[in-house]
C-alpha cells in the first residue's frame, strides 16, 4: 500500500463504496448513502453511524463535500453532497487488490 493512502476500516470501505454507487444514480448525500448501504449489504445500519463516518472520511480527506441550495421540502435546509477523492479511490483499489490476492491464494478448493 502506498505511504500516503490511509488504512480503511471495513465500515469506512462500505460507506465509500455506497457513496460511489449513490453518485452513479445521482447525488450522494445522507439518505441515498444510507439507502445504498442497507439495500446492498442487507444489514441494519445506524443512521448516526453513517453520518458520523461520512464526516470522519471528509476530515481524513477521503471525501469532499458541497452544499446545494436550500429547498422547501427539506424545511429550508441545504443538502450536503459527497464525492470520493483521489486518495480514497487509491485506498479502495489497494484494498480490493489485497482482498483479491488473498482469495486467489485460497484457490478453487477452499470450500468457501
Amino acid at each position: 500500500m502506498p505511504q500516503d493512502v490511509p488504512p480503511l476500516g471495513e465500515f469506512e470501505q462500505m460507506v465509500l463504496l455506497a457513496v460511489l454507487c449513490a453518485e452513479k444514480d445521482g447525488e450522494a448525500y445522507g439518505i441515498t448513502v444510507f439507502d445504498e448501504l442497507t439495500a446492498r449489504t442487507k444489514r441494519g445500519v445506524a443512521r448516526g453511524a453513517v453520518y458520523m463516518t461520512l464526516d470522519r472520511l471528509e476530515k481524513k480527506g477521503l471525501l469532499s463535500s458541497y452544499q446545494t441550495e436550500p429547498t422547501a421540502e427539506r424545511g429550508g435546509r441545504a443538502k450536503r453532497c459527497y464525492q470520493v477523492t483521489k486518495p480514497a479511490m487509491a485506498a479502495l483499489r489497494e484494498s480490493r487488490r489485497a482482498l483479491l490476492n488473498l482469495w486467489e491464494g485460497l484457490g478453487a478448493k477452499s470450500g468457501i
Binding site: 439518505i31 435546509r77 450536503r80
Partner: peptide, 20 residues
C-alpha cells in the same frame, strides 16, 4: 453535538424523508 452545516444537512435529510 456537531458543526452547524452538518447538523442542518442531517435535519434536512430527515425532514425530506419524513415528508416522503
Amino acid at each position: 453535538l456537531t458543526d452547524a452545516t452538518l447538523a442542518d444537512s442531517i435535519a434536512g435529510d430527515l425532514e425530506a424523508e419524513r415528508r416522503r
